[in-house]
Computed example of a mutant assay.
Amino acid sequence: MSTCIRFANFERKNGEIARARNCYEKAIENLADDNEETEELFVAFGEFETECKEVQRVRFIYKFLLDHILKSRAENLYNKFLASEKQYGDRKGIKDAVVGKRRF
Results as ranks from 00 to 15, higher is better:
42 F>A: 01
74 A>Q: 05
50 T>P: 02
6 R>V: 00
68 H>F: 07
90 D>Y: 03
39 E>Y: 07
52 C>D: 10
89 G>Y: 07
48 F>R: 06
86 K>N: 10
46 G>I: 03
71 K>I: 03
6 R>D: 13
34 D>Y: 11
50 T>W: 01
56 Q>R: 09
71 K>D: 08
88 Y>T: 09
14 N>W: 07
60 F>V: 06
17 I>V: 11
67 D>H: 10
81 F>C: 04
86 K>V: 09
7 F>M: 05
33 D>V: 15
33 D>E: 14
29 E>I: 11
15 G>P: 04
55 V>A: 03
9 N>R: 06
20 A>M: 09
5 I>W: 01
53 K>D: 09
79 N>K: 11
31 L>C: 07
93 G>S: 11
103 R>P: 04
38 T>W: 00
103 R>Y: 06
81 F>K: 01
34 D>P: 05
97 A>N: 05
49 E>M: 12
54 E>Y: 13
67 D>Q: 12
24 Y>M: 01
2 S>Q: 14
69 I>W: 01
81 F>I: 06
96 D>P: 03
17 I>N: 10
28 I>S: 06
82 L>I: 05
76 N>V: 12
24 Y>V: 02
64 F>Y: 14
75 E>V: 04
65 L>N: 08
52 C>I: 00
12 R>G: 02
66 L>I: 01
11 E>N: 14
48 F>L: 07
97 A>Q: 05
88 Y>Q: 15
99 V>Y: 15
67 D>T: 08
28 I>V: 14
36 E>L: 09
78 Y>N: 00
87 Q>R: 11
39 E>C: 07
78 Y>W: 10
3 T>F: 07
31 L>H: 09
79 N>Q: 10
75 E>S: 03
30 N>W: 07
45 F>V: 10
87 Q>A: 15
66 L>A: 01
90 D>A: 01
59 R>K: 14
1 M>C: 08
72 S>Q: 09
45 F>D: 02
7 F>A: 03
84 S>K: 06
17 I>F: 13
88 Y>I: 10
3 T>S: 13
11 E>S: 14
11 E>D: 11
